[in-house]
């Protein structure tokens, strides 16, 4: 039996598709939450209040450097063992990815806000715009242009990061791939199974991420 044929039989292909669905679902929910919370966090990072800004920088530094796998384990364990919360592995993953993503996206928003020169605010006010009008008509449209490519890149990073939730056994692409391989290994008929399955998994991730990365680059150069 050929490798690909075997991969598609026994419901393997179907399982893999389900796994990909899970990957996309977790990545999209986490990205959406990160973007919403990250916009708020961006204003914290750009705040004029020293303490608020200091807290923001500390938080950003923490989520940037703390390994996500460790955070996943800690939350998953402590929520159930110490706090008695009954949260699923999927919820755990989304919470941790969002805590990380919101930090990263906040920094992007801060960058966009500070890249708009001060004279734009001043000219807006000189023209008699109210604060709300100033943001709605002048600052936000320009910021959105600068932020959109980065937001798309965040989604691709999120898709790649979701592979880590196989550490806490979420049935996403990586986990399904590993399960297919371990079943194949039990039969000893498919020594090439790891390579075939990981090739398919790699291509699947590439097809999810690459078009997005390309679109982000295109927007970057056309909106620059």
């Amino acid at each position: 039996m050929g490798s690909l044929e075997w991969l598609l039989n026994w419901g393997n292909g179907e399982q893999l598709l389900k796994g990909i669905g899970y990957t996309l679902l977790i990545a999209l929910i986490s990205s959406a939450l990160s973007i919403v919370l990250g916009i708020g966090f961006g204003f914290v990072l750009a705040s004029k209040n020293r303490w608020l800004r200091g807290f923001g920088r500390g938080y950003l530094e923490f989520v940037r450097i703390a390994p996500i796998v460790v955070l996943l384990y800690l939350l998953y364990y402590f929520a159930s063992a110490e706090l008695g919360w009954n949260i699923t592995n999927v919820t755990t993953a989304i919470v941790i990815f969002t805590l990380w993503g919101a930090g990263e996206f906040g920094d992007i928003v801060r960058g966009a806000l500070s890249s708009i020169p001060a004279h734009q605010y001043e000219s807006g006010r000189t023209l008699g715009l109210s604060n709300a009008q100033l943001y709605r008509l002048v600052i936000i449209p320009q910021s959105v242009r600068r932020i959109t490519p980065a937001a798309i890149n965040l989604i691709t990073r999120m898709i790649k990061t979701t592979s880590l939730c196989s550490f806490i056994s979420v049935a996403e692409t990586m986990t399904i791939g590993r399960q297919i391989i371990s079943v194949a290994n039990q039969s000893f008929h498919h020594p090439e199974a790891p390579l075939v399955v990981y090739s398919v998994v790699m291509v699947a991730y590439f097809l999810m991420c690459w078009p997005l990365a390309k679109a982000a680059r295109k927007l970057e150069s056309s909106w620059g």
Binding site: K160, S163, M174, P194, Y198, M202, A213
Partner: peptide, 19 residues
């Protein structure tokens, strides 16, 4: 660069380890 940046490092590691 495209392959390395658009696939999870986990898959890359598995690939090397089994490949």
């Amino acid at each position: 660069i495209e392959v390395a940046r658009n696939t999870p490092s986990m898959v890359q590691l598995y690939f090397l380890y089994f490949g």
